[in-house]
């Protein structure tokens, strides 16, 4: 993107006073200020329901803020037109907890949908994409180690494999930013490590700016350069990962709760209950 070639000091992503209140009254984001320079590997931590996913969805315009400004690569996402929004999304890979693959379609088709932003008009089936792009999709499947599954239906894969296909789909966009919302929350530990390693590897190779939300602090500390903690829609922690100890990060989940919410001190296990309750929800 030409307009993003402005000097490195300029943040690639910036949020200024962003608040989001959903129609049901929930205040999901509460006056969030955040600025992220190019090339940063940022991990967003916090409990389920703390606003992590909502924040991520504001970055590519899936959600619009109630107030405040979201600026990504020089485009004001918070007020962008549909066309502008598509332009921004093309440059942002987004990996979801639930993979977001079309189960009945083959892996190759799923990866190809990542190229839709580059194409005009609807496409249906492998044959409707230019050969050049099909070949590219093969390359990306090779990169995530699933080329042998190219002509297999996505719903025949394991969870870890599905997430790798989703990563290949994002790579198809040739994005400058990679967002991953709880990418390993539905995976077993072994697949989790594999998927996170892959994500980090391609991000570094492609010099992408990465934001990953995680609820496991150890994973977050393992590879991020910056840790941001959210609680009840507010930024309660923003530190360089190298100077941050695990205990400090845990404050996002525990001690910070008490200081901010007087009710909680009377119910010592309240946060635990919340976590359990929300995890049960689909």
């Amino acid at each position: 993107m030409q307009d993003s070639s402005t000097s490195g000091a300029d943040p690639l992503i910036s949020l200024t006073g962003v608040s989001k209140r959903f129609p049901n009254g929930t205040l999901a984001l509460d006056n969030v200020d955040l600025s992220i320079p190019r090339g940063q590997l940022l991990s967003l931590i916090g409990l389920s329901g703390s606003g992590k996913s909502t924040l991520m969805r504001h970055l590519n315009g899936l959600h619009r803020p109630t107030s405040g400004v979201v600026n990504v690569m020089g485009v004001e996402v918070s007020s962008a037109s549909n066309r502008q929004l598509r332009g921004v999304r093309k440059n942002i890979g987004f990996v979801f907890q639930q993979f977001g693959l079309v189960g009945r379609a083959t892996c190759l088709e799923n990866v190809l949908t990542g190229a839709l932003g580059r194409l005009n008009g609807p496409r249906y089936g492998v044959w409707s994409y230019p050969k050049q792009l099909r070949s590219e999709a093969f390359d990306h499947l090779e990169r995530v180690g699933l080329v042998n599954q190219a002509y297999q239906r996505a719903d025949t894969l394991s969870g870890g494999q599905m997430q790798r296909v989703a990563i290949a789909r994002s790579l198809m966009q040739q994005p400058q930013i990679m967002l991953a919302d709880e990418p390993v929350a539905s995976l077993d530990p072994e697949s989790s490590a594999q998927v996170l390693d892959l994500l980090l590897k391609v991000a570094v190779e492609e010099q992408m700016t990465v934001i990953v939300t995680l609820h496991q602090v150890e994973l977050a500390l393992g590879w991020a350069t910056r840790i941001v903690g959210l609680r009840d829609g507010r930024v309660v922690l923003d530190r360089d990962a190298t100077t941050l100890k695990q205990e400090d990060a845990m404050e996002v989940y525990q001690r910070v709760d008490k200081s901010l919410d007087p009710d909680v001190s009377r119910q010592p296990d309240a946060s635990g209950v919340t976590q359990r309750a929300v995890q049960v929800a689909p």
Partner: peptide, 26 residues
């Protein structure tokens, strides 16, 4: 399912591209 739709929309695909790519196969 909504998840594939949201995911494909996030790649910068248009509304009809997304519908054809995710809803029709389902």
């Amino acid at each position: 399912e909504f998840a594939p739709r949201e995911a494909v929309l996030s790649t910068g695909a248009g509304k009809w591209q997304t519908i054809l790519a995710t809803i029709i196969p389902q």
